[in-house]
Write a protein that binds this DNA or RNA. Structure first.
Lengths: 333, 333
DNA sequence: TTGCGCTATGTTAGCGCTAACATATGGGCA
DNA sequence: TGCCCATATGTTAGCGCTAACATAGCGCAA
């Protein structure tokens, strides 16, 4: 009957063998009901499912993982998740992995190499079946940790020449050259780059600068800003005479435009009418809503996430996927 | 000497006892070096640390968790992480929990009750030491699962009257009344609400509506939009004659303003000059950068996250924390 | 009738670690 | 001298589950 229901106060979570006892079977049969129900006779299965319901059994995947050497989890390391395009990537990979029973263990490095190494070690100690990270390990120690883990490692949002394992991203250097080419073709002469100095932003800067120098113009200025967009609002004052700006991301671009607006240097007309052209990167939805609409390098953060997830699941095949980018021209530049 | 270094190909990850053997101690001593180094004599410790380095030992927290019944992890459930203010909350709680050795297991419900229940079950089967979620469980089944887990549960972004356990949020209903009061005081007569119909947005709507009715005006219109802001751009056409709009979040507000702009109904002047007043919720940085600047209900998503983290750590004390909100008046309404 | 193969279930051992309890050693002090 | 205590290390058992290999029962072909 309904005997021996656990004392709700002192209770410890019911185990597989508690269910087994209640259903009058061995624990492996209960395990089969959870994992491979087709192998269990329908009547037995019904009896066990009833026992599970009565006890409120929740499988313990920690124990299961230890016994089977499969954790069904992936570690995900991003610089930051707040206010960032990386959230799209996390969303994309989750959408792919959660239906397959994988959990996402999320860690943030905050653009700090030491913290990144600590987070990688912390992730690996949970024995994820793969690691997906934005960028590449910042230190040799981080690389070593990842290589020794012998699991799929996917670096994203860039195309490193010597990745640890797999890559899903785009060429940040080329993104810089594409923007530079466009602005130069527009007749801009005094160009500048604003944004962070993380590895990916730096590659954008390098592409931008090299292309401008190659076209015979003077070396562009580079303004390193911290991560919130407020700094970019005042950036214009620090770039006198500039007539075109490439911002490392859309938030900085929009902040910069706010500064231009208060300086009376923003028009509601097309790019050719702008005293200062502005191009961002990321293609935030917001960029389409503001006025003038923001020209930007469009990157599919969620596709990067989904592709990274695929790369963790298939070990063979192409391990370097260039998802490309697109220069989307609107009214800002 | 440097004998018996593992074969890099067939190698299985080195264990505590492999380190112990190499250092000539028992495995518990190695465990102590990892967890309570002060209990180990300095010379022994040095020998063990050397062995750990040589073998590339990475502790297996899965096994540790099973043995100690402590996983040092928390489950986090959000509707969505992409493009959303919830990312701030995840950031806030991570910042608090990661330094303490906790990992964040992230799951997304996508505003789907069935998926939420599946994700809760999946999270609980990993035996997190607490669950932090946005909102409250959508189904009775979800509540039951959480209650039976006997771990701290923190519901956020709202102030439910009968929470499972703890709460860190603000009163969405009051946020709605505050906006209504402000718009009515401004002399607006034809008001509308745009946004989603999730529980929190609905509470904002109810507060908004009730306050407007109480002030003697006609019942406001409510336009339910899907989650991306594009729908809000066209929303104005569906709200003829409206002179004030409360958007359930800033993205919708900014989208709506884009629609107003193309309709010629947006001024760069102060709120009193706007043909249609707009108030958002969330206080995105973007709202301060656009023109006109966005009036909004400011909510501290990261503080919600940090407070939720604190509530998972301390079991005693106040379990219901109202972080409040602030009506920030700028130029849009 | 024998024996084979299939289905349903069980037994055994162990995943890698930690809790809880020993044990050994060497002062210090009455 | 004997005892106590602090420090350093070890032993044992077991966390809850699964892999891998039994075993039992049955239908069916030869």
């Amino acid at each position: 009957m309904s005997s021996e229901l656990p004392d709700p106060e002192t209770e410890t979570a019911p185990t597989l063998s508690a269910v087994a006892k209640r259903a009058g079977v061995s624990s492996i049969t209960v395990s089969r009901v959870v994992r491979t129900p087709d192998l269990v006779a329908p009547e037995t299965r019904a009896r066990i499912e009833k026992a599970m319901r009565e006890l409120g059994y929740v499988p313990n995947l920690v124990a299961g993982a230890l016994a089977s050497a499969r954790t069904n989890s992936v570690g995900v390391l991003v610089p930051t998740i707040a206010n960032s395009i990386f959230a799209d990537t996390v969303q994309g990979l989750s959408d792919k992995l959660e239906p397959l029973g994988f959990s996402v263990i999320l860690a943030q490095s905050r653009y700090d190499a030491a913290r990144e190494d600590r987070m990688l070690a912390a992730l690996l100690s949970r024995r994820p079946e793969a690691i997906i990270m934005v960028g590449s390990p910042a230190t040799e120690e981080g690389s070593r940790l990842l290589r020794n883990a012998r699991i799929p490692i996917v670096e994203t949002w860039d195309l490193p020449t010597t990745p640890v394992d797999a890559v899903a991203g785009f060429d940040n250097y080329k993104a810089g050259t594409a923007v530079a080419r466009h602005l130069v073709a527009q007749g801009r002469k005094a160009l500048a780059f604003i944004g962070g100095d993380d590895p990916r932003a730096t590659r954008r800067w390098l592409g931008f600068k090299d292309e401008i120098l190659a076209s015979g113009l003077a070396e562009p200025r580079r303004l390193i800003l911290d991560r919130n967009a407020s700094g970019s609002v005042a950036a214009h004052a620090r770039l006198p005479g500039v007539d075109a700006v490439f911002a490392a991301n859309d938030a900085h671009a929009i902040g910069f435009m706010a500064g231009l607006r208060s300086a009376g240097l923003l028009r509601d007309g097309p790019a050719s009418a702008q005293p200062v052209a502005v191009v961002g990167l990321g293609d935030l939805e917001m960029g389409r809503l503001i006025s003038p609409t923001l020209s930007t390098i469009s990157v599919h953060g969620d596709a990067i996430g989904r592709t990274a997830a695929t790369l963790t699941l298939e070990r063979g095949g192409e391990r370097r996927i260039d998802l490309g980018f697109e220069l989307v021209l609107r009214d800002s530049g």
